[in-house]
Amino acid sequence: MRRSIVRGLAAGAAGTTALHAVTYLDMVLRGRPASRTPEQSVTRLADLAGVKIPARGRDNRVSGAGALLGIVSGLVVGAGYGAIRAAGWRPSVTTAGAVATVGAIAVSAAPMAAIGVSDPRDWSFSDWVADVVPHLAYGWVTTATYAAMLDRGEPGQRSVHPNEMRDALSGRDS
């Protein structure tokens, strides 16, 4: 179980990198600003917890904490994916990628909705695209990375052929 969770953490880190790359590419291509919801979440959570954020460097602290929240979310979803794989779940590449995508969206959007920072029911189509596309990159890269790390000798698991890795990254079932 521990190895599978560690593998999931590493896969989640790769997925988080992909999510950030796709997000920043979207910002470059469309000229859109960065989302303020991570910073708003940090501020709201600090208020709810009664934690005072120091005035000196406040904006930088809040920005850094917001980015860290996103990284932690990606690692948590990756670890969770590793745990359910260790428990015996062996989905197709397509199913695994979709589940990791939905898990990442839920772990990021649900807490923001719960604390009143954002309500996905009010998002425009463009808002949904800006959120879903990077999370799709997260889901596919996380599951493909996990698959690439499987050990040949581990019970119930096998090595991944390079064609399966290619198919995983392209979204095709192997």
Rank of each mutant, 00 (worst) to 15 (best):
R166G: 07
D131V: 01
L45E: 05
D167N: 15
M1G: 13
L45A: 07
V132Y: 02
V102P: 00
H135E: 02
T145A: 15
V42N: 02
G82L: 03
S159W: 02
S92D: 04
L25T: 14
V51Y: 14
L150N: 07
A148F: 03
A114W: 05
V141W: 09
R36E: 15
A67Y: 04
G97Q: 02
V99E: 01
V22R: 00
R58P: 04
I115F: 03
S41V: 13
G171D: 10
T37R: 07
A106C: 07
T143S: 03
G8A: 09
V22L: 04
R172P: 06
I105N: 04
S174I: 10
Y24R: 10
A49G: 05
A98F: 13
V6E: 13
I53Q: 05
V132T: 08
D173Q: 10
W128L: 15
T94A: 09
A13I: 09
A147T: 08
W123D: 13
V141P: 04
S124R: 12
T17I: 15
A106L: 08
D119S: 06
R85L: 07
M149K: 06
W128C: 10
Y24C: 07
S41R: 03
V129N: 09
G8L: 05
V117T: 04
V72K: 00
A100R: 01
H20W: 11
V93T: 05
L29I: 08
A87H: 11
G153S: 15
E154K: 09
S174A: 11
H161K: 15
N60V: 15
L48H: 05
A147N: 14
R2I: 13
M1V: 12
L19P: 01
G156R: 01
A104S: 12
G64N: 06
S73T: 07
G12N: 10
V28D: 14
L9V: 12
A98M: 06
A67T: 11
G64Q: 08
G31E: 02
L9D: 04
R44I: 01
P111N: 05
W140V: 13
D26N: 13
S159F: 00
R90L: 01
R30M: 12
